[in-house]
Computed example of a mutant assay.
Amino acid sequence: MTKNSYQKSSQQTQEEALKIARGTQRPAQTKEQTRLIAQGIQKGIDLYKKQQKEKARDLNRKLKKISNQKAQSIEPDDHEIQERIVYRQHWLPWLLLLLTWLGVGIYFLV
């Protein structure tokens, strides 16, 4: 199966190309020349639309690929890392508390 690379232009594109061709028409220009210019403009518009569609498809593919990669990289990280927080206190307050209790104990015993 062969694929035709030429697609029929929309009516809007044809009208737009004819409008542009008439806008740039020279005084001694024939209708045939204007029609040929309009066809050239129409082909240019069609080529531009085709390029834009291809760019959009490429961008969508890249975005889809990146989102798939992100989704795959996120899946293994679902297991949260359990952190164990250990509060370490300085020994000086405990020593002072012990000495205070010893001092109070000795004071009441004596």
Rank of each mutant, 00 (worst) to 15 (best):
M1Q: 12
T2V: 08
Y6M: 00
K8I: 01
S9L: 13
S9N: 15
S9T: 03
S10F: 00
S10L: 04
Q12R: 15
Q12T: 15
T13D: 15
E15P: 04
E15G: 13
A17P: 15
I20E: 14
G23A: 01
G23V: 02
T24L: 12
P27S: 08
P27G: 06
Q29I: 10
Q29D: 07
K31P: 14
E32I: 03
T34W: 00
R35I: 07
L36S: 06
A38W: 03
Q39R: 12
Q42T: 01
G44V: 02
L47A: 11
Y48H: 13
Y48L: 12
K49N: 14
K49F: 00
K50S: 04
Q52G: 03
Q52C: 09
E54T: 08
K55L: 12
R57L: 09
N60C: 09
K62F: 02
K62L: 13
L63C: 01
L63M: 05
L63D: 04
I66S: 08
N68Q: 14
Q69K: 13
A71C: 05
A71V: 03
Q72A: 12
I74Q: 07
D78M: 03
D78F: 01
H79P: 01
I81W: 00
E83Y: 09
I85G: 03
R88S: 10
H90I: 04
H90A: 07
H90Y: 09
W91S: 09
L92W: 15
P93A: 11
P93W: 13
L95A: 15
L96D: 06
L96G: 15
L99Y: 05
L102A: 14
G103Y: 01
G105V: 13
I106G: 05
Y107D: 11
F108N: 08
V110H: 12
